Simulated assay, not measured.
Amino acid sequence: METEELQAALESAGLSQYQSDAYVAVLELGKASAVEIADACSVPQARIYDVLRDLETDGYIETYEQDSLHARANDPGDVLANIRGQAATLAAAAEEIEERWERPPVDDHMVSIVNRFETVLDRARTLVAEAENEVQIALSPAEFEELRPALAAAHDNDAVVKVSIHAADESDLPDDDALSGTVTQMRHRTLPSPFLALVDRTQACFAPQAHSVNQYGVLVDDYSLTYVFHWFFLTSLWEVWDVIVSERSEDPPILYTNIRQCVRDIEPLLADGATIEVSVRGYETGTGVRQNVSGTITEATYAGVSTASGEHIPLAQLAGQVSLHLADGDEDWTIGGWGAFVEDVEATRITVESIQYE
C-alpha cells in the first residue's frame, strides 16, 4: 500500500490529516525528535507538539523528553484491533445496505416492484420452504436446482408441490433423484415461460422471461391478486402441458387442492351412479375459522354447461362458480374453491376417500 493510501485509511479510521501524516512519519523513523518528525511530514513545526500529544492520548505513540520532545510508536496491537474492528463494521454495514436494497418490505395486501431477479428468487425460496398447503411454480431447470432444497422442505411439510418446468430439450430436465421427495406433480413446458411461484394462495413471486426487454420482478402479498396469477398458471403454464411426474394416486384416497380439477374427475363418476365419500379441509367463508367436513357428495354444480356425456369438462366451463354439495348425515354443506364466499366452506384440500358403485 502506498503512503498516501495508508494515510487515507488512517483518516477513515478517525485520525485527522495531520495526525495520520505524523503517525506514518513516526512509523518510518522508529523514534525521533518532534522537529525531525515535522521535517519528515507536512505538519508545521508550530503544530507538531499538539499533534503528537493527541496521538499519544489516542494510544498511537508515546512521547518522552530527551533534551527535547521525542516520540516513538506504541505496539500497534490496539491500533490494529481498532482498525480491523472498524473494517468489520463497515463490511457488515455494506452487507446490510445491500440486503435492505434487495429486500423490499412485504406487508399485508402489498405489491412490490423490484429490479433484480435475485430478489424474486430469494423471496420465493423463503416462501416455498415455509409452504403449508400448496406450491405452484413455473421455472427453468437451473432455477429448479436453486430452489430444490426449498421445494423439498415444502414437500416435507406435506404441501402439494406442482412444478411447471420449461426446457426445450428433455435431457435438461432434472433426474429422478432430484425429483424424489421434491415434487408432487411436474409438467414439462417446451416453450420459455416467466418465473412464477404461488404459495398457499396468498403469496406470488413473478419475473418475466429471461430474454424479455424489460427486466423486473413483482412480489405480491394479496389473496385476490394471487388468484389472478393462479389462473395464468393454470391456463398457460399447467393445464395444456404433459404430466411427466406424478405422486397422485388414481385410486382413493385421491388428494385435490383445486376444486375444479376434482369436479372434472368426479362428474363422470357421479353420472355413472357412483357414491363418492370425501373429506374437506378449509375455512368457513363467513368467519375464516378452520373447518373440516366429511360426507357424501350429492351433487357437483358449476356455471358452465354440463357435458352429460361422461367426458371431462373443458376448463373454460369451470371458469365461473364451482361447488360441491356434501351431506354428512346431520346437515348439508356447500363447498367452494379458492375465493369462495357464497358456499359454506372454502376448501383448501379435498380428499376422495372412496368411490363405490351399487
Rank of each mutant, 00 (worst) to 15 (best):
G320T: 10
V280F: 00
R201Y: 12
V278Q: 04
I61Y: 02
H109Y: 12
H325Q: 12
G329E: 14
D54L: 05
T301H: 06
A142I: 07
E134N: 10
D265L: 01
L121F: 03
S246N: 09
A131D: 01
T89L: 05
Q356M: 10
P149D: 05
A207H: 00
A32T: 14
L127Q: 10
A207K: 00
T287F: 03
Q317V: 15
A347Q: 02
T182I: 12
V120N: 00
G310V: 00
I244Q: 08
D75M: 02
Y49C: 09
W338M: 13
V322M: 07
T257F: 05
W241A: 04
E95L: 13
L270Q: 06
E343G: 07
V263N: 08
L225I: 09
E353N: 15
I165H: 14
G181W: 01
S140D: 06
A46Q: 04
L198Q: 12
A319M: 13
I254V: 15
L191W: 15
T298P: 03
W231E: 14
T296A: 04
G217V: 10
E146M: 12
A142L: 10
S309I: 07
E5A: 05
A34S: 13
R125A: 13
H188F: 02
H70C: 11
Y216T: 10
Q185P: 00
D222W: 02
Q203D: 13
V26E: 01
S279I: 08
L52K: 00
N292K: 13
D156V: 11
Y223K: 03
E143Y: 03
P44C: 04
A152E: 14
D177I: 02
D156A: 13
V263H: 06
P149A: 03
L6T: 11
D78M: 14
G282T: 03
H211N: 06
V352W: 08
Y227C: 14
E102F: 10
